[in-house]
Amino acid sequence: MSLRSLTHLQRLEAEAIHIMREVVSEAEKPVMLYSVGKDSAVMLHLAKKAFYPSPPPFPLLHVDTTWKFRDMYSLRDRAARKAGMQLLVHQNPDAVRQGINPFDHGGLHTDMWKTEGLKQALDLHGFDAAFGGARRDEEKSRAKERIFSFRTASHRWDPKNQRPELWRTYNARKARGESMRVFPLSNWTELDIWQYIHLENIEIVPLYYAAERPTVIRDGLTLMVDDDRFPLKGEEPVMRSIRFRTLGCYPLTGAVESRATTLPEIIQEMLLTTTSERQGRAIDHDQAASMEKKKQEGYF
């Protein structure tokens, strides 16, 4: 009998759907971390597929830093509405009070808004499983993390003490207070993500496409002046045709000069480029093991 082989994207899609259905069946109160980036967009799309015709049976959670691009906030609200899902937004009240920002506070900015903010939000709502869009190809310590990644009650990850993960059988059992971070996109690469967005026609933030935008160049990063909170040190913003390969806080996210205005052009540029995706993010620029340390402390 001759049947058809599934393509690698079909298999990745099926795997992600399988993982999401497991979480919903095993966890008491799951949530999907939604950062509005392209990986989140794919994850949300897969969630809709996994439970169709039901809406995904969990809310979306955006751990907000208040410093995201304006385009991200508008897509966030629209995407949640279209999916028929509740959107929870958490801003760390301590960071709000202290006015933590990426210009004055360096590493503290990520730590307080993202790491602490995430822990606060998970504790506040009592979520015991949180989907994240991280991929194993992004960074070396991610490559070793399980799909179902166990966290202690204080949200710590212990890379030396991970549960073995066989077949597609996942152990989601845990004691009260402990939680799982679950990564349905673990086995996707950046190319897979782009290709899938293209094939499935998934809406992404326009910043991924090249356009003329006001920019300054600082410490080797091309930064976009997205609003008037950007303190200019005598610099004059210059209009450049840029796009973003990854989206975070706008003062921390480097753009690349580009003319790519369609998805195939973005993919073409990505394939011919010679720098890896995370280089655009200032967070990774410290030592090699920085991400592993951050993750042990509870960073997603």
Binding site: K140, A143, K144, P159, Q162, N187, D192, A289, E292, K293
Partner: peptide
């Protein structure tokens, strides 16, 4: 060899997943 502790020991101690693709297939 990914994790910091392992680098120091000079051995791989866990399961790590890598990805690459050729004309015909994607590999994990």
């Amino acid at each position: 060899d990914g994790l910091a502790a392992e680098r120091e020991q000079g051995i791989t101690i866990d399961v790590a997943y890598r990805f690459f693709a050729t004309e015909k297939r994607k590999f994990i």
